[in-house]
């Protein structure tokens, strides 16, 4: 039920009130709409920072995305399919 992905993906993000979060992303040939950000955390990688998000998409799956500020690249880290 957990798929490790680790792919670079295009993400549409919203920046508001000093925060940002992913809203849509393209993966597997389709646009996934982020319905809810369920978790967020961050870590340092040298002097750079990696922002992680757990999101629920319109397909009912939970995905973990991360933005690496060193390369300004979004990654789809893993997909946790609903249902178990």
């Amino acid at each position: 039920m957990i798929q490790q992905v680790g792919e670079s993906i295009p993400v549409l993000a919203r920046f508001r009130d000093g925060r940002f979060e992913p809203r849509k992303f393209l993966w597997g040939g389709g646009v996934r709409i982020v319905e809810r950000v369920t978790g967020r955390w961050s870590e340092h990688d040298g002097q750079y920072k990696i922002y992680h998000f757990a999101v629920m998409t319109d397909t009912g799956s939970c995905c973990e995305l991360s933005l690496h500020t060193r390369h300004m690249v979004w990654l789809l880290d893993r997909v946790l399919a609903a249902g178990g």
Partner: peptide
């Protein structure tokens, strides 16, 4: 708990 928050489909399981 943290995993269940991030992935609500895991709640109650």
């Amino acid at each position: 708990q943290v995993e269940q928050i991030c992935n609500p489909s895991l709640r109650g399981k």
